[in-house]
């Protein structure tokens, strides 16, 4: 694989990718229904609502009820997509998801916007950094955190054919679009963005772009990075991870999430059990977020390309 320098011409929010994916699902699958807890505009669900008012359920500010309604709608063959902020999609309704959806194995797609630090100015009450952990701990729950508008749209569409409970995590800010519109998206299969020999960088969500930016710096320093997108945190694509680290012999992971409970923790378990190598998790270091602009927050919490570069060099040093 020849090295490619990833660039972008347009920025768009990943939540719009969800909204557009949902619109397409609505046209093609009449069993798809959508529920929203008073955030239709924020979740970009207006098209679906306008196209299929009979299949759209405005539940008001009552997320627990929304999860129960969604579980009930599956009984009768519907495929419900719930929409609210990531915080209210997970922590607020954990027990409802656990009992009525996950344990009951209901075909509910929990779609969560404004995840992570990059929601920005609203601050820590809304910036959930624990949601991946909560969701991945539930047996049978699929957890997906796409990286840009195109991938989020593809992930939403893929969930229409997926059977079982799933959590789809996306965000608020306009973010570079650097994946092709017609890329192949397979739930549970990682995607190699760059081939390299010195270190593996596994990244999910917005942080894939940050990782690709870090790679540019590392490349200029003569470091050859293998960059792999793990959009599906559960089930984890163990094969792509193990193959890569057997070659590069060290790795880092990048996510907009607490270092406890996220992608990095899943990879840590995998490599410590199957192929121990030097490894570092890049994420928020067990703290809450705060108000600020998205990129300023990523910098303050060491999720910027410079911090990724530093971590990569540190890990390579341990080989």
């Amino acid at each position: 694989m020849e090295r490619k320098e990833y660039t972008y011409t347009e920025k768009k929010d990943t939540r719009s990718g969800f909204g557009d994916g949902l619109t397409e699902l609505g046209k093609n699958n009449e069993n798809v229904v959508a529920l929203c807890a008073d955030l239709t505009g924020s979740l970009k669900m207006n098209d679906f609502k306008n196209n299929h008012p009979e299949r759209f359920f405005q539940v008001g500010i009552a997320e627990a009820n929304m999860m129960g309604l969604a579980a009930g709608l599956t009984i009768g063959g519907k495929i419900p997509f719930t929409g609210t902020f990531a915080n209210f999609s997970t922590g607020r309704v954990y027990d409802q998801i656990r009992q009525s959806i996950a344990y009951s194995h209901k075909n509910v797609k929990i779609c969560a916007s404004h995840a992570g630090l990059t929601l920005g100015e609203d601050g820590a009450t809304h910036q959930i950094l624990e949601d991946i952990g909560m969701m991945k701990m539930l047996p049978g729950m699929t957890v997906i955190n796409p990286c840009d508008y195109n991938q989020t749209k593809l992930a939403a569409i893929a969930l229409g054919d997926h059977v079982g409970p799933a959590y789809l995590r996306f965000g608020r800010p306009k973010w570079p679009i650097f994946t092709p519109e017609n890329a192949k998206f397979q739930i549970g299969k990682g995607i190699k963005f760059l081939d390299g020999n010195d270190i593996s960088i596994f990244a999910t969500g917005h942080m894939l772009w940050q990782a690709l930016e870090a790679e540019k710096i590392l490349f200029s320093l003569g470091v050859s990075c293998e960059v792999i997108n793990i959009h599906t945190i559960k089930p984890l694509d163990e094969k792509i991870i193990l193959e890569s680290i057997k070659k590069t012999k060290c790795a880092i992971s990048c996510e907009e999430h607490n270092i406890i409970g996220g992608l990095g923790e899943s990879i840590s378990r995998l490599i410590s059990e199957k192929h121990p190598i030097p490894f570092k998790v890049i994420g928020v270091n067990d703290s809450f977020g705060e108000s600020g602009k998205p990129l300023d927050l990523l910098e303050k919490y060491n999720l910027n390309p410079e911090s990724i570069k530093e971590a990569a060099l540190e890990v390579i040093d341990k080989k």
Binding site: F57, A64, N65, M67, G68, L69, A70, A71, G72, L73, T74, I75, G76, G77, K78, P80, D95, Q96, R98, Q99, S100, Y103, S104, K106
Partner: peptide, 19 residues
Amino acid sequence: VASGSLGQGLSVAVGSALA
């Protein structure tokens, strides 16, 4: 549906009624 953790069944039933 599983039940036991209280308060959830009415929501599920209403969802089923919507279906």
